[in-house]
Simulated assay, not measured.
Amino acid sequence: MGYVAAQHSAVLVLEDGSVFPGLSYGATGRSLGEMVFCTGMTGYQETLTDPSYHRQIVMQTAPQIGNTGWNDEDDESDRIWAAGYVVRDPARHPSHWRATRSLGEELHRQQIVGIAGVDTRSLARHLREQGTMRGGIFSAGAVTDTAAMLAAVHGSKPMAGSALAHEVGVERRRFIPAAGTTRFRIAALDTGIKKNIHNLLSERGIETHLLPPTSTFEEVQALAPDGLFLPNGPGDPSTAGPLIEVVTQALLRRIPLFGICLGNQILGQALGLRTYKLRYGHRGLNVPVIDARNGQVAITSQNHGFALDAVPGQTFKTPFGTALVSHYCPNDGTVEGLQCLEVPAFSVQYHPEAAAGPHDARLLFDEFVTLMEKGRES
């Protein structure tokens, strides 16, 4: 039986007791997770399939979602990772030449519990004022009395303290070839890498050996890589102790390193910085970032709920020499990038692969190439 448009009553319950009514969308039942909002007006397929959204219920602030349907080319991984989905006004019929089915059909096919008809403006304002919190979507037979649903939400695991990278990364080593002539070989610790990252690395002549997030430095070193790549991923970065140790060893041996999102937080901790949880995080395709080195501004795609505790433009001492807080967000002063000045390593908090999103920061992949070229010369 195919997907049937939303007909069941549904409710979104937050851990502070707030209740938002609506109608079921996608699969029916119960879904629990951290309630977050994303400001992107498009790119919902990439958002839903981004492993960084693992165990999070995603709400779209844009009122109309699903207009372009769902296709077989834009997935950023092999499944939807979001725990649940909240929208205001889902498209009745998708309209795009690449669409093969509707968003609602795909949510139903992958058994993702969603809710539509929610006052998403009110919900976004609530989360901005109160901060992200645990939530639950309940529809059809899962709708019970408010006390029982709230108890279920309170019984779910908080994001703080959660180690999730091992739940989204590969279990065995994978090889992604370069497009055309191979210029470099890199090791990438898979904490939730996105497909378009592979694309941008590959088109620059980089072959990627994707390693499980539990890999040791010895396993990285056995590949004799030209560089080490740290991608995005879910969970609390303070739980990434083994990954931090791998990065520490790589820095000691001056292996060129590039980190994105969670990778930025892992590099920062290896350099001696601490992380903290943001009030409501940065999630969307329109977040400004300033390069403290030259004042240039980029509009970026972001998805993170934790950040590094440091001062924008600050240089600081590390076990590997001096480092610079190279990028920051002018909206709230959040650290958006690091550059090591005495070892070949840098990172950014945002997504230069930007799938979906602006392409302002794609040149960072070229900077990684330059770093590896210099590594060969030294």
Rank of each mutant, 00 (worst) to 15 (best):
M1K: 07
M1Y: 06
G2S: 14
Q7G: 12
H8E: 15
A10Y: 05
E15W: 00
V19G: 06
G22V: 06
G22L: 01
S24F: 03
Y25C: 01
Y25G: 07
Y25R: 01
Y25A: 02
M35F: 05
C38E: 04
T39E: 14
T42F: 10
P51H: 12
G69L: 03
G69V: 01
D75T: 05
D78R: 04
R79V: 01
I80G: 02
W81M: 01
A83N: 00
A91D: 10
H93P: 00
W97K: 05
E105V: 09
A116R: 14
D119F: 08
D119S: 10
D119L: 13
T132P: 00
I137C: 06
G141D: 11
G141W: 04
T144Y: 00
A147D: 14
M149T: 04
A151S: 12
A152H: 06
H154V: 00
M159Y: 04
A160R: 14
E167P: 02
V168A: 09
V168F: 03
R174N: 09
F175C: 02
F175D: 09
P177V: 05
A179N: 02
G180M: 08
T181I: 12
F184M: 04
A187G: 14
L189E: 06
L189C: 09
H198I: 00
S202R: 08
E203F: 04
T208Y: 05
T214H: 08
T216Y: 10
L223H: 09
L223I: 13
D226S: 07
F229I: 12
P231W: 08
G233Q: 09
P234Y: 10
P242L: 00
L243E: 13
I244F: 01
E245V: 10
V246Q: 06
T248E: 14
I255N: 03
I255Q: 01
L257F: 04
I260M: 09
I260D: 03
L262S: 00
N264V: 00
L267H: 08
L267E: 11
G268L: 04
T275G: 07
Y276L: 05
G281Q: 02
V287C: 09
D291S: 14
V297W: 03
A307P: 02
A310S: 10
P319M: 11
F320M: 03
T322H: 10
A323H: 14
V325R: 04
Y328W: 14
Y328D: 09
N331I: 12
N331Y: 07
N331M: 12
D332N: 14
E336C: 10
E336Q: 15
G337W: 11
P344M: 13
V348P: 12
H351M: 12
A354W: 11
A355M: 08
A361P: 06
L363R: 08
F368E: 13
K374M: 15
S378H: 12
